[in-house]
C-alpha cells in the first residue's frame, strides 16, 4: 500500500504573529518553523503506525515550498517517511497548492492521501477536499481514527456533536485530527537515516490561483481586564448581566 502524506511548514505555535511590507507579508524573521502539527502528529504518525503494522506500506511525503522547507521535510523523513518530494514553488493560495499535490499524486498510484485537518497559519482546511476533487477521489474529513480492514479503510470521523464510523474503498483522501495517533519525536537512528533518504525537488505544474491576499490585520487589543474582588463574585454575575448583557 502506498500512502502520500501532505506536509506543510508553519510557524511554531508560540511564534509572535506580526506583519511587514505594509501588512502584506508575515514577519518571518527569528521565527521557528515546524511541521504543521496536524500534518505531523496525526497524518504522518498514523501513516508510520500503519507501516509498523504492515511493512509493505510505503510512505511518500510531499510539500510545496522553497528550499527553506527542506529542514521540515527532513524532520518528517526522520520520523519515518520513506521518501519525499518538494514542489519548488511558493504557495499562493490553497487551490494552487492543492493543484501541485494533485500533480504529484496523479500518477503515483497512491491508495491513501493523508493531510492534517488544517494548517495553523492559514487555517483553510481546504487542501484535502481540493486534492480529492482534482483526482476524483473520495474524501473523509476530520478523521479521529483510521484502520485498514480487508482492503477497505474504516474511518471514524467527527460530525456535529458526535462521531460517525464509515467504510471507504481506496483510493481515499483523509484529513486527520486529534485522536488519530500519539505524537512522537524522531530518534537518532531516524535522524541519521533521514540524511540518505531521497528528497526529490520537482518544478510546479501550471496552476491558477483563485484568490489573493490583499493584507493582514492584527485584532484590536482588548481594553484590559476588569478585575472583580474574590470576596464578591456576585459582582461578576451582575456585570455579565447588566454591562456585558450576555447572561
Amino acid at each position: 500500500m502506498k500512502i502520500l502524506v501532505c506536509i506543510s511548514k508553519t510557524p511554531d505555535t508560540t511564534a509572535k504573529i506580526a506583519f511587514t511590507d505594509n501588512n502584506t507579508k508575515f514577519a518571518s524573521e527569528g521565527v521557528q518553523w515546524i511541521i504543521n502539527p496536524y500534518d505531523e502528529w496525526y497524518a504522518l504518525v498514523r501513516a508510520i503506525e500503519m507501516k509498523e503494522k504492515d511493512p509493505t506500506v510505503q510512505i511518500q511525503l510531499v510539500t510545496v515550498g522553497g528550499a527553506d522547507a527542506d529542514p521540515i521535510i527532513r524532520k518528517a523523513l526522520a520520523l519515518g517517511g520513506d521518501e519525499a518530494i518538494r514542489v519548488d514553488a511558493e504557495g499562493q493560495d490553497s487551490f494552487f497548492i492543492a493543484s501541485q499535490i494533485a500533480g504529484v499524486a496523479a500518477d503515483g498510484g497512491f491508495d491513501l492521501i493523508l493531510t492534517g485537518k488544517e494548517t495553523i497559519d492559514h487555517n483553510g482546511a481546504s487542501i484535502g477536499g481540493m486534492v480529492a476533487e482534482l483526482l476524483d477521489m473520495d474524501y473523509v474529513s476530520l478523521a479521529v481514527k483510521l484502520d485498514m480492514e480487508q482492503g477497505k479503510a474504516v474511518v471514524t470521523r467527527e460530525i456535529e456533536g458526535g462521531e460517525e464510523i464509515c467504510e471507504a474503498v481506496l483510493p481515499l483522501v483523509v484529513s486527520c485530527q486529534k485522536g488519530m495517533a500519539e505524537a512522537r519525536i524522531p530518534n537518532m537512528r531516524g535522524i541519521m537515516a533521514a540524511r540518505s533518504k531521497p528528497l526529490k525537488v520537482v518544478v510546479p505544474v501550471p496552476a491558477a490561483s483563485l484568490t489573493s491576499i490583499q493584507s493582514f490585520e492584527l485584532p484590536l487589543a482588548k481594553s484590559g481586564v476588569k478585575l472583580i474582588s474574590a470576596d464578591h463574585p456576585e459582582e461578576l454575575v451582575r456585570l455579565l448581566h447588566e454591562e456585558a448583557r450576555i447572561i
Partner: peptide, 23 residues
C-alpha cells in the same frame, strides 16, 4: 464553516474553479 462546509466547499471550489474564502 462547520463540518459539512469544511468538507464540501473546498471540493466545490476545485470543481467550479471558484475562489474560496474559508472562515
Amino acid at each position: 464553516n462547520n463540518i459539512t462546509g469544511k468538507a464540501v466547499a473546498p471540493r466545490l471550489s476545485a470543481r467550479l474553479k471558484a475562489g474560496l474564502v474559508a472562515g
